[in-house]
Design a protein around this nucleic acid. Structure first.
Length: 302
DNA sequence: CCGCGGGCCTGAGAGC
DNA sequence: TGCTCTCAGGCCCGCG
């Protein structure tokens, strides 16, 4: 029957492996790499929204502007996926907290010559269906509905509310200690809050902020501006943080295809565990900053 | 302009 | 077993 493969969930044959955490940059990038195979170069044949909104309402002409369009490229910016269409429009997608895609390969209908799709396999949280010219249907599922889908007109990408204030892409060439230092300059908040701010660095969330700070041996409670001079030049620690951010993200992307179990993170959700740093005898502590959990080692993170 | 806190949302897990 | 409660965090908005 119809074949299903999940694009953001790690294959889960035993159905007791914990769900992967909230999608941040590496997870979104992994989704992009899978999804581009079915989207790039293909035409969107039919669009169905099964409710009127996710976090915000779908545009009233959502289906009309997508149907018949060929997808030129599927890009990522921060935690957003951007499907560039031939019309010049861009389909903007965000996974929110619980969003995921899966691809259901349609079965050839011998009688009518088209493809059919088994609707019995849909569940209550399958909100958007994109049937491609190949016959594959891309299903967007999002129980919490913190996700987003929108269409941005040609030329309006730079001025789009969601995109315009995003900070630098940490994995872009050109992202370095100077870039980071300039963004942290004068910030009175903590490093945790600053790195969680998409205007400072794009794509980090609660998990990878904790991981990067641990790797850089920097305390999440430290004032962000202490990594820069008054002029915005990097100070000691800025280099380590830059490298830690990039390493944490690259490692996560590289390991996405593999089952990682509970060792995926070194400090996130590891309260009470021994600090994984060699030679450190500390214990991972959990505190709350800006209403969110922070996990860190008070001994080696300063 | 900046930073903080509250709100949205549902499923998982704890506790009774 | 089943109910109720709390927690999780993406982004946004309003307040001071």
């Amino acid at each position: 029957m119809a074949e299903i493969c999940s694009l953001s969930r790690i294959p889960n044959p035993e159905s007791r492996i914990p769900e992967p955490a909230v999608p941040e940059l590496p997870e979104v990038e992994a989704v992009r790499r899978q999804l581009r195979r079915v989207m790039e170069g293909a035409r969107i044949q039919r669009v169905e929204t099964r409710r009127a909104d996710l976090r915000s309402p779908f545009p009233s002409d959502f289906a009309a502007r997508l149907e018949g369009q060929k997808v030129k490229a599927l890009r990522r910016r921060a935690k957003y996926l951007l499907a560039d269409l031939e019309s010049g429009d861009t389909l903007l997608m965000h996974l929110g907290m619980s969003g995921s895609f899966r691809v259901v390969k349609g079965r050839k209908d011998a009688v009518q010559g088209g493809f059919y799709f088994e609707r019995s396999r849909l569940d209550a949280h399958d909100h958007v269906l994109l049937t491609m010219s190949s016959g594959a249907t891309i299903v967007f599922n999002d129980p919490r509905r913190f996700g987003q889908m929108d269409i941005v007109s040609a030329g309006a990408l730079d001025s789009n509310r969601a995109l315009k204030s995003l900070g630098p892409e940490p994995l872009d060439r050109g992202f370095n200690a100077m870039t980071l230092a300039r963004k942290l300059k004068g910030k009175k908040t903590t490093l945790k809050a600053a790195l969680s701010d998409q205007r400072v660095v794009a794509g980090l969330g609660n998990i990878y902020v904790c991981e990067a700070l641990h790797r850089a041996r920097l305390s999440p409670k430290r004032r962000a501006s202490t990594l820069t001079t008054a002029a915005g030049e990097p100070r000691p620690g800025a280099d380590a943080l830059t490298e830690a951010i990039q390493d944490v993200l690259k490692d996560a992307i590289a390991n996405k295809h593999r089952y990682q179990g509970n060792d995926r993170f070194r400090v996130y959700d590891h309260e009470g565990h021994r600090c994984p740093r060699r030679g450190c005898a500390g214990t991972i502590k959990r505190i709350v900053q800006a209403g969110r959990s922070t996990f860190f080692c008070p001994v080696c993170q300063r």
